[in-house]
Design a protein around this nucleic acid. Structure first.
Lengths: 386, 386
DNA sequence: GACATAGGTCCAGTGTCTGGACAAAAGTGT
DNA sequence: ACACTTTTGTCCAGACACTGGACCTATGTC
């Protein structure tokens, strides 16, 4: 067995991560000979993994042709499952959404029924767009609960009854012959999406998803960190109000989620005469400019900021983003207010705290990135190309 | 430039991390031919990086000779700086302390004076043990404050006046010609030490250092995580008692460190007639079986447990260890009590929460590990051995 | 002493990468 | 139009490194 010193995959990695954008760059970065680089690029161009473009750089001679990852060589099918609805999308390999749909299905119906419904919607979406499973390089699914990083299965999820250790990927694979299926936690996927879309250089990024529940996703050095058994980022059940009587879904009292989640804000809004129930409903009121919703959401943000102060001190992230259905100016203002007051100045000094840029698409984009990172890793590509 | 497909360094990595302990293992894991493996091992054995041992495995034929990293091929000089004293040690490459000394020097004296004193003590210790700088493969120094992961210099330390961005490594290098000097935060170093000594397989480990101050070190996948600018793990200034009037060193009120650190406990003990001031003093009272110290330390543990609940929810670590001068049964009991009551059951279900096993040596062992990881990385070894 | 396992070494063959030379392509200037 | 520059493609002999089989030695057990 001949070894693969510097295979095409390694070159692709350089190109995908922007460390080389022309042939000259590849030559310089790898130190390989021109012959070898030409060979590698032949393979990559031949396989359609890389495409050439033109750069307008006028240097007094022939212009160098730019190299870039071919994001339209195939598609990714992504499904972002949330408690009451699921977003399904077909994306190109850069995370651009080519087609999407949304179905109303509550996770409480259990994995078998939910996944069947997702599966048939996926097939319908593929059909409608004239995409066959063969056009897909992978599929991804995110869940609103912890996912074991090794097995890829739900890991003792608090709000997904009957889902524990359910073989999610295997279930979907039945309708997607030959397509690898990856799974992740929704906040983790969203964090990876925001990382890929706008903060690809950041050493550490933290996304707070505020919707019906509250959770965070952590990206360190470009890789999702999900903890020993997938439970990392679960800040919804941190005790913030020891004396509060607000009962949380988890059965405890005083959880952050019990006083600051979409569910909690919805309850307060209902009491004020705006009958809503989910974080998404609150988001709609916010978008409509409802003053009560803005005030209560900002108040929730202040409580979330308390916990985020600890998170920021502990992780010292470069970027903190706010996502989820309730992501909005009032929420950001509330979080910012408490965070900057409570946390050590040194921890917030270089911190970028802002709203996520992808909105509802974050998880879908993150899933695409996961699939692409997996299917176009140096090893995978080296294995594919002889 | 000939590439290095699978250099000796890669083989050493396998051996160092216990993924191959015999020649047969190396053959199987790498898939290389016997000839090549023999060549690589010749190089490693010849350079003294690997030594052979005997295994008593009776398999009905010739016994396989075990391969192990040669921990006595050279030495590491480690200095663990704490607020009032510094521990200096010479270790072998496995982290075993061969000689050590301690000097009383307060960091408030400023970097130049402190490092001069450390430097001369280092030289004295080397002389006494007949070790020359040439026998060292590296040196490490840990500081009780954030260290920038890129520059290796103190990064806006709250309690190290005058140390900000001071070129620590360069200062020490003057007396250690040709010896690479690495720097780290003390809790990070201690976490890495405990990881190396007893939890080498853990995906994520968190060490809480409770001494005069409170901080944590985080190890993920065998590598220290210190955040965007070295500030990760700084939980001492998380607000736990919003209404407390206890003023913290940092100028704020209600910090964890203000109510649960060694300094806080010492103050309370002094009020009870035991005149002490540092976390170390408290540790001595604890060791002597003082009941007041035990009670107050356990009480401090309860407060620390509150914050650790958040930490555990956020990071979902596999192992949490208690270290620092106040590490003791009462402290552990206090932390355990609150943590298991407050945190989500799923987060603590598989959690190993215990006292660190290295005590005062943790940081020194961690520094050794840092140096060894750096100097005997696959790339470094491949570069050294042709 | 027969047999099993671990390990060393020789050697021809294979395949990959180098590095220099040369040429073509695609620009810019006079 | 012509010379010059920069980027890229291609040819080729030589240098290396690794394979994989054969054969041998060392060190065990039964």
């Amino acid at each position: 067995m001949g070894p693969v010193p510097t295979g095409p995959g390694d070159i692709l990695d350089l190109i995908r991560h922007g460390r080389a954008t022309t042939r000259g760059d590849v030559l310089e970065v790898t130190g390989l000979s021109r012959m070898t680089v030409a060979q590698r690029l032949d393979a990559l161009l031949g396989a359609g993994m890389v495409v050439e473009g033109e750069t307008g750089q006028a240097t007094g001679g022939r212009r160098r042709r730019s190299l870039s990852f071919n994001t339209s060589q195939s598609r990714v099918l992504a499904a972002a499952v949330d408690t009451t609805h699921t977003r399904i999308a077909i994306t190109d390999l850069g995370g651009a959404v080519l087609a999407d749909t949304e179905i109303d299905v509550t996770v409480e119906a259990g994995p078998s029924e939910v996944l069947d419904r997702i599966s048939s919607s996926m097939v319908a979406l593929l059909d409608k767009q004239d995409v066959t499973p063969g056009d897909l390089c992978g599929a991804g699914l995110s869940l609103p609960g912890p996912v074991d990083p090794v097995s890829g299965r739900p890991s003792q999820p608090p709000i997904l009854p009957g889902w524990d250790a359910y073989p999610v990927a295997e279930h979907l694979q039945a309708d997607l012959p030959g397509v690898p299926v990856l799974t992740a936690n929704d906040a983790d996927a969203a964090a990876l999406g925001e990382y890929a879309a706008g903060h690809a250089g950041a050493r550490s990024l933290c996304l707070v998803k505020v919707a019906t529940g509250i959770g965070t996703g952590i990206v360190i050095d470009g890789r999702s960190y999900s903890g020993a058994d997938g439970g990392a980022g679960d800040i919804g059940h941190v005790r913030v109000s020891p004396n509060s009587e607000a009962l949380c879904q988890c059965g405890m009292q005083g959880c952050l989620a019990a006083v600051a989640s979409g569910r909690a804000v919805a309850r307060e809004l209902t009491a004020l005469g705006h009958p809503v129930s989910s974080g998404r409903d609150v988001g709609e009121l916010l978008a409509a400019g409802n003053a009560d919703a803005a005030r209560l959401t900002q108040q929730a943000g202040r409580r979330i900021g308390e916990v985020m102060a600890t998170v920021v001190c502990l992780l010292n992230p470069e970027v903190v983003l706010i996502g989820g259905a309730m992501a909005s100016a009032p929420l950001l203002a509330g979080i910012r207010e408490t965070l900057y007051r409570i946390a050590l100045p040194r921890a917030t000094r270089h911190l970028a705290l802002q709203l996520g840029s992808l909105g509802e698409d974050a998880a879908v984009v993150g899933l695409t990135r996961m699939v692409v990172d997996h299917e176009f890793s140096a090893e995978a590509v080296n294995a594919k190309l002889r």
